[in-house]
Design a protein around this nucleic acid. Structure first.
Lengths: 194, 194
DNA sequence: TCTAGCTATGTCAATAGTGACATAATCACT
DNA sequence: AGTGATTATGTCACTATTGACATAGCTAGA
């Protein structure tokens, strides 16, 4: 039970429920779209975690009957859940371990690759991240237009959403830059130096 | 035993063994230092994985007897291992799932935080990433000085190391920028807008 | 009526990763 | 002789995550 504490996934769920009450199904779609660019989870992870959170007293649920679609369990964060989340937010994240990135791992062995295939890979990834950057830019524009000054009101969830999005934008910008640089080196290279 | 394929961790290990023969212990320290900024693994994961790689015929080992310290098993990549690694390198990484980042997750719930504690967290993280950026910059300078033109020879492991490091540098630069921006918003904010 | 698709909730086996435990050789120092 | 650090290899229990399987209600269109 361990009242008042949970896993990182638990805090991700609480972070969403702190804004609005949601079903497991809705949480799963939020995890794909909204929060998905820095934390992901499948419904197979979410449903059991909701049970644990409820056992720990951090969320409660009630069944909502629907006529046009199947009934659902809507989960709501408790005072205890708010308290746990608020405490966790300012605790320093553990260790200096950086993120795992498979493309960088591939780059580390890139000297073994067929040059044409390597260029194709990085041009392709450049495009993937450029698309994602554009998508984030669209969301940013929407937030600025729809939310106005709220995005700078640091005690509002809108600021928090905007801040998280900024990390995504900066990250994708850097990723595009890197992919392009690698591709250019490979194109220029053709095996020889300068 | 599924000849010629392995897990991502397996390719990380092969990527190191493609450059030099190493013991499990040495691999573990490389995983902390060299490759550690984009892929990490404990020795408890590495030793079993080496066994699997050997069963799959991708690596072999021989025992090296040492007088000044305990004996060790030195692992060497096989032709089959080189082939598997070379193929994997240019395969597009799966899915569009971005990296998990706990600090961004915290940012998403930052509206619930004590403002002073939130500023402290992001100033602290800014410093952490600034330090890491400086460290990467030192390594970059060392590579450029020691390796010269080799870092642009795209069929050399030195280029591959340099390219992977570039991702780390760009990433940390962006991370520092973001932390600073968040901290500034929080300091300026004090709960009100603009 | 049948089908496809979306909403909705769950379980389960397998893989990936962490942290603790366990053992042992060797060296430097006290 | 004892202590602590480093090198060296391994196991084990637990947690985290994925992908497949399973079920079912409801709607819209062929």
């Amino acid at each position: 039970m361990a009242e008042g504490s949970t896993t990182t996934l638990g805090y991700a769920i609480l972070g969403l429920l702190a804004r609005e009450a949601l079903s497991g199904y809705d949480l799963a779609s939020r995890m794909r779209a909204r929060v998905g660019f820095f934390w992901q989870a499948r419904h197979s992870q979410i449903y059991p975690e909701l049970t644990r959170l409820e056992e720990g007293g951090l969320v409660t649920h009630h069944v909502v009957e629907q006529s046009d679609r199947p009934d659902k369990k809507v989960y709501r964060i408790t005072d205890s859940g708010f308290a746990a989340l608020s405490e966790w937010v300012t605790e320093p994240p553990p260790g200096p371990r950086a993120a795992r990135d498979e493309l960088v791992l591939k780059a580390y062995s890139l000297w073994l690759a067929e040059p044409e295939l390597a260029v194709a890979l990085f041009r392709d990834q450049e495009e993937v991240h450029r698309e994602r950057l554009l998508e984030y830019g669209r969301i940013e524009g929407w937030m600025e237009k729809e939310w106005g000054e709220d995005i700078l009101r640091t005690d509002s969830p809108r600021f928090a959403s905007y801040a998280a999005l900024q990390r995504g934008i900066i990250n994708e910008r850097g990723y595009v830059e890197w992919c392009r640089w690698v591709a250019e080196q490979l194109e220029r290279g053709k095996g020889g130096a300068g």
